[in-house]
Amino acid sequence: MKNLTDIEIIDSIKKGNPSDYALLIDRYKNKAFSLLVRMLKNEMEAEEILQDCFLKAYKSIDSFRYEAKFSTWFYRIVYNTALTKLSAKKRKIENEMSSIDEQINLSSDLDYRVTEKEDLSNFIQKMIEQLPANYASVITMFYLDDMSCEEISEVMNVTVANVKVMLHRSRNVLRDLFIKNNYQRELL
């Protein structure tokens, strides 16, 4: 049963087996939660939003037309719901989105937070959490969910070029912090 594809599960739900939706929830809950936590920077809020997203997705499952992957379609719901939540919290996400075309200095915002030496993977985790929502989303979807830049652009409703810009800038910021904190010595 667990080897069913997303499409087979959706077909089964549409045929009147709502309990099969649990399979989709189990399949995507942690990845979607990781995305939300990195966007909202709050686990409790993220879990609440994720529940809403799964309910929303179930409610509109009939409108799923098989044109995109279920994961892309679902992540779009998750991403947009998180953006709505963020804008409701007046975090000025619109400024973040428009800043793609501007020269930004992410490293100066993050630099001061690195105070002590720690494990490299912990350092990376912490730095991702510090990234602005859209940059953190790109990193999470690209690396954790193995999504292509095209799929991420569909989810975020931006161009593929913009996704690449955000991906490269995020990496560059992390690399600069990595060098500044002498982490490369650990690798030598």
Partner: peptide, 30 residues
Amino acid sequence: DALLSIHKELKDIKEVKVSSDFTSSVMRKL
């Protein structure tokens, strides 16, 4: 080298896990 290290570390980033009763809670609501 630094960029490659970051790239490698990012490939290993961990999932953040939801609470254990998440699925049942959503199904109950549903």
